[in-house]
Amino acid sequence: MTEIIVVTSGKGGVGKTTTSASLATGLAIEGKKVAVIDFDVGLRNLDLIMGCERRVVYDFVNVVHGEATLKQALIKDKRHENLYVLAASQTRDKDALTQEGVEKVLEELAKENFDFVVCDSPAGIEKGAHLAMYFADHAVVVVNPEVSSVRDSDRILGLLSSKTRRAEKGEAPIKQHLLLTRYNPNRVEAGEMLSVKDVEEILGISVVGVIPESENVLAASNAGVPVILDDNSNAGQAYKDTVARILGNERPLRFIEPVKKGFLKRVFGG
């Protein structure tokens, strides 16, 4: 059975595409057949983060409109043979995607025996975001420890439990996973940043992962390599743990305690 995972947040710039790329790659490392789809029509970016931007010939909208087959449009990942990327169209026509069109593509992916389809949602709560979440079985809600992101996440959690196919058909609700990104334990300890517990309490849902703020995330996007492939980075390791938890394995939360400064730094600050 194909499981559909939407990566969403409401607010922009919190790490949806970074998360989609790492999640899809992580699932592929675990041997799953995975497709990751960019739903951000007009603002294609997943291809850059996945490092396949020069190999985009056909996109999601081409497939929906019958201008290309799904096979033609799926870009095979260079690093993992069971991972495919479907790029967003750069058209400015916001109505290029339809519910029927999206459903057709998802059904076709199911026929091709994909284990997971990761839908990278655009920011906002407009049509693109609605379509990205509508058919989902799982939702990964990406949130930063910051007031506007937390508030928007609560809004998205409400939409997930009312405006999706599972909700409308009265089926079992979407499995909601909260992913806290850009977390800085030192600032939390200093009382400058909301803690994991704060965010969990406010939203009434526990986290599936905490991704520490890390320089490696920018380095990874610069290089077009999902950060989960960077074994030396805390963020990459935290994404690996998150993938394991989504697959039902238990992993303790890491990187949520402050890093103690060395002696010289304690004396001279910094």
């Binding site: 007031v147 609560d154 200093a190 400058e192 909301l194 803690s195 704060d198 406010i202 004396v267 600050g269």
Partner: peptide, 30 residues
């Protein structure tokens, strides 16, 4: 905390304020 840190102004801990504001607005919107 370094001996030079007192030269910098320390920001007021603000996470508590954020937490309380969010609790109220989220409950109201729900």
């Amino acid at each position: 905390m370094g001996i030079l840190d007192f030269l910098k102004r320390k920001p007021e801990p603000s996470a508590g304020v954020a937490r309380e504001r969010l609790r109220i607005i989220v409950a109201q919107e729900r």
